[in-house]
Design a protein around this nucleic acid. Sequence first.
DNA 1: TTTATTTAAGACAAATGAGTCTTTTAATAT
DNA 2: ATATTAAAAGACTCATTTGTCTTAAATAAA
Lengths: 141, 141
Amino acid sequence: MFSKACKYAIRAVLYLAVHSSPENKVGVKAIAEDLQVPKHFLAKILQQLSRDQLISSVKGPNGGFYMADENLNVPMEKIIKSFDGMEVFTSCILGLPVCSAENPCPLHVQAFAYREGLYYQLQHQSIREMADRVKLQELKL
Amino acid sequence: MFSKACKYAIRAVLYLAVHSSPENKVGVKAIAEDLQVPKHFLAKILQQLSRDQLISSVKGPNGGFYMADENLNVPMEKIIKSFDGMEVFTSCILGLPVCSAENPCPLHVQAFAYREGLYYQLQHQSIREMADRVKLQELKL
DNA sequence: TTTATTTAAGACAAATGAGTCTTTTAATAT
DNA sequence: ATATTAAAAGACTCATTTGTCTTAAATAAA
């Protein structure tokens, strides 16, 4: 469903949402080790997240990545949009160029329910809300 | 979600289920043109489907691919299993090595419900039933 | 101001997936 | 039997994704 880059991005953002703050920044190395993902690849992903203003960063000693308050209010959906585009939710599951309720492919009804449900959740849940759930329920990253 | 090979496979199988019979075989060329997919790539896919006994084939003049009666009774799921494996339905949506109801990732609940629905349908609907729906509702391939 | 630290940027390499082409094998019509 | 036809097999190329590495830029501590 999601690309590896996108999966790492989601996990990294939630990691920062749980473990960082403007006073307590985290470096690539620590994140990569905790999430068990390739360090340099993660670095690129964090850079893209930073460029897209989904996370914050400062260079130099005691620098690192962190979630500013405004970063936390963004819906989860934005992360996915930045990496895989919203096509993961909207494009035809069989790859047909046109596929809609009026002109559906054989799997349209089945697939629509699945993806639309997930999409709705990610649109309406902020990173902050998601991170709170991670903390409360001790979910894994 | 599905690989291109898998998408082409699903479409090709349903195409054969609608347009072929033991008396009326169809060649790669015709299928590729009707479905608008790369001919040689489709050839490989049809060969795999044939090896896995999801479709039938005969070589030589008047040969081609077709659905035998036993092919039609197979659940849709088998096609996907053959190409992408059942991991597309069961593996963690964030790529975590372990992710279950007891030990869930942050997206587990959201992803599970909807994906399970799609999986259930494909497990319990035969190629024949799906093809009948394609004919009746004039669905696109 | 110099040095150490950490992100930013981008070139590069490896792995995988998608797609093409050629040769072999089997079936059938003549 | 032979020629023809169409699938089977597999080598090969191309594109994309994943992952690595090196250098530059910025920040802050000494």
